[in-house]
Amino acid sequence: MTARLSAFLVHGFTAIGAALAMLALLEAMQQQWDIMALWLAVALLVDGIDGPLARHFEVKKHAPEIDGVLLDLIIDFLTYVVIPAYALYASGLLPGWTGWLAVLLIPFASALYFSDTRMKLPDDSFSGFPGCWNMLVLALLVMTPGVWVTLTLVIILSVAMFVPLKFVHPVRTKRWRLVTLPVALIWTLAIGWAAWTNFAPNPVLTLVVAFSSVYLLVAGIAQQALNGRHNT
C-alpha cells in the first residue's frame, strides 16, 4: 500500500465520524438515548484514534488536498455540539424555555470557539472549555442532576469557552497522561455500560461518571494553578 493511499484511507476513517453523527441524530430523533449514546461513544473513539493515525501516516504530506484539521472540526461540531444540544432539548433534561436556551446558546458559543485560532495550547491542551458537549450530555443522562443544576452547568461551560482556563486532551496532553488517559477510558466504559443498560439508575455508575467527569474538567485548571504557584 502506497503512502498516499494510506493517507487517504486515514481521511476516510476520520470521515466515518460524520456518518456516525447521523446515526446518533436519527436515534436522538426517536428518543433512543441509549443507542444515541453508543453511536456518540463510537464517534468519540474514532476521534481519539484518527489523530495519531494522521500523524503516523503523514497525511499533510501525502494527501494535502484534504484538510484534515477542517474535516475533524466539521465532524466535531456535529458530534460534540449539534447532537448534544438537541439531546438536551429533546430528552427532558432541560424542558421548556431552558431547553430552548441550551439549543440556541450551545451552537452559538461553540461556533465562535471552534473558529478561534487560540483554542490550542503548545502542550496540546485547550484554552477554554473545548465544547465537549457530548461528554456533558452523556454524563448528565447517567447522573440526572435536575434542571437547575444542568442549566447552570450549560451556562458556566458556555462562558468557560472564552475564559483562559486550561482543559486537557486525554490523549495528546502529556502532563498527567498516565492518570488522565485511564480516567478517560474508565469514563468511556462507564458511559458505555450505562447506555447498554438503557441508563437504568445505578449508584455505582453514577459515582464513577461523576468523579471521572470532575477530574477531566479540572485537571487542566489544576495544572494551570500549580504552574502559577511554581512561578511565584
Score class of each variant (00 low, 15 high):
residue 7 A to K: 11
residue 46 V to R: 03
residue 216 L to C: 07
residue 63 A to L: 07
residue 131 G to D: 10
residue 176 W to M: 10
residue 14 T to F: 11
residue 177 R to D: 08
residue 220 G to K: 02
residue 62 H to I: 00
residue 176 W to P: 00
residue 170 P to F: 06
residue 176 W to G: 00
residue 213 S to F: 15
residue 213 S to M: 13
residue 79 T to A: 03
residue 141 L to Y: 02
residue 190 A to Q: 08
residue 67 D to V: 04
residue 211 F to V: 15
residue 195 A to W: 07
residue 49 I to W: 04
residue 158 S to I: 06
residue 73 L to M: 13
residue 56 H to Y: 13
residue 24 A to G: 05
residue 41 A to G: 15
residue 180 T to N: 15
residue 15 A to C: 06
residue 145 P to T: 05
residue 137 V to N: 02
residue 175 R to P: 02
residue 100 W to R: 06
residue 137 V to Q: 03
residue 45 L to F: 14
residue 202 N to V: 04
residue 92 G to K: 03
residue 171 V to F: 12
residue 82 V to D: 01
residue 10 V to M: 06
residue 61 K to P: 00
residue 231 N to A: 11
residue 31 Q to L: 12
residue 45 L to A: 14
residue 97 W to I: 13
residue 225 A to S: 02
residue 152 T to E: 06
residue 191 I to S: 02
residue 163 V to H: 06
residue 2 T to C: 08
residue 15 A to G: 08
residue 58 E to Q: 13
residue 70 L to D: 02
residue 11 H to T: 06
residue 51 G to N: 03
residue 179 V to W: 11
residue 11 H to W: 02
residue 64 P to N: 07
residue 204 V to E: 05
residue 207 L to V: 11
residue 40 L to R: 04
residue 78 L to W: 12
residue 107 P to G: 03
residue 2 T to Y: 08
residue 181 L to A: 13
residue 72 D to F: 07
residue 186 I to Y: 06
residue 5 L to M: 07
residue 120 K to A: 01
residue 114 F to C: 01
residue 196 W to D: 03
residue 31 Q to P: 00
residue 232 T to R: 14
residue 229 R to Y: 12
